[in-house]
Amino acid sequence: MKVLGFESSCDETGVALVETRPGGVPRLLAEALYSQVDMHAAYGGVVPELASRDHIRRVLPLARQVMAQAGFGLAEVDLIAYTRGPGLAGALLVGAGVAVALAAALGKPALGIHHLEGHLLSPFLATAEEGGAPEFPFIALLVSGGHTQLMQVEGVGRYTLLGETIDDAAGEAFDKSAKLMGLGYPGGPALSRLAEGGNPAAFALPRPLLHSGDLDFSFAGLKTAVMTQHRKLGPAPGPQPLADLAASTQAAIVDVLVAKALKALKTTGARRLVVAGGVGANRRLREQLNAGAARLRARVHYPPLALCTDNGAMIALAAALRLQHGLAEGQTEGAFDVRPRWPLDAI
């Protein structure tokens, strides 16, 4: 069975085709992605109206590209999936509208997917060379955009929230700290690159809630500390002090994420950890999580690097896995809604 997935929750337009095989892991047949980063860079962040309009321009050409790459016609698609939420309302409506209209035209079912469920399940697309697909149950560390959460995952659709951020998410801490340092947009990757040449112990930055005893996160105080240190460097800091501040900032964020994730493994007794979302591509985070999990005799799974950020493959995959587990309830023909705010444990 073939599933065509659309992702349009924020500033990336993603389309992908995934095939389910009886008793096997779903297989990615083709995918295409267009990022709006260059367009939004001029404004220092995502402009929702511009994002929505660009999704309208890109979604159908990308869908044609995917089908041509896979070598199938639209009539051979069995299910159309799209991101229902959370995300920017206007952007979500573009993907939902195209997906549901296409499903109605083809006489096929449509299925709205939770954006974070897509990220959470994306490691199931990893090849053997990339570590292979995880097995249930596992702990999931979701570090995507404005979301930082720890979930206990018993199976597809069976998620229990263990902890989440009470203010800024890890991705926001990267981006906002980078902006304070004048690194531009998108800030997170720029900060990580600059940190490669810095000393992570150069500045004593706080690790919020590191010893709180629970699995919640907080990064707003770290952002304030970074701002204070940056001001102390003066209006024109040299390249090395700035690299040191970037490295110290990254170290503070990663230390908290690693400590909480390992605590979740210890608390639950789980032996598998899934890390998904854009921050999951961070090299220092991966190194420390791998080392910490090894000490606990646990294993860490990641999606392919190309699928860490938002993409259509994870949406098609989540729909395919829901289909396999009898959870793919289609919706009334021609009807749809989006949920800009939608807790993962409420689906």
Rank of each mutant, 00 (worst) to 15 (best):
A30P: 07
L50S: 02
A16H: 04
V15W: 06
A75I: 03
R64Y: 00
D38V: 09
A42W: 09
P22V: 10
G44H: 04
A75H: 14
A51R: 02
L28P: 09
H40V: 05
R21G: 14
H40N: 01
Y43I: 07
E12A: 10
Q65D: 12
A75R: 15
A30M: 06
I80E: 02
S52F: 00
M39Y: 15
V18T: 03
G44E: 11
V77P: 02
A75W: 01
F72K: 04
S8A: 13
L29Y: 03
E76H: 04
V15T: 05
A30V: 02
S8R: 11
Q36E: 03
Q69Y: 00
R57W: 05
T20A: 11
A63D: 00
G23T: 03
G23W: 05
R53H: 12
P48R: 04
Q65R: 11
A68G: 12
S35G: 04
D38F: 05
L79D: 06
S52I: 00
V66L: 03
A32D: 08
E12K: 07
R21K: 10
V47A: 12
G45P: 14
I80T: 03
E76N: 06
T13S: 06
A16S: 08
A70I: 04
I80S: 03
S52V: 01
E19P: 06
D38H: 12
A75C: 02
Y43R: 14
A30W: 09
E31C: 09
A16Q: 08
S35E: 07
L28M: 08
T20N: 09
M39N: 04
L29R: 13
F72T: 15
E31N: 08
L74K: 00
E19C: 05
G24K: 13
A70D: 05
S52A: 15
H55N: 01
Q65T: 13
G73T: 13
V47K: 08
A51H: 07
E31T: 07
H40K: 06
L29P: 02
T13D: 01
R57T: 08
P61L: 00
V66G: 02
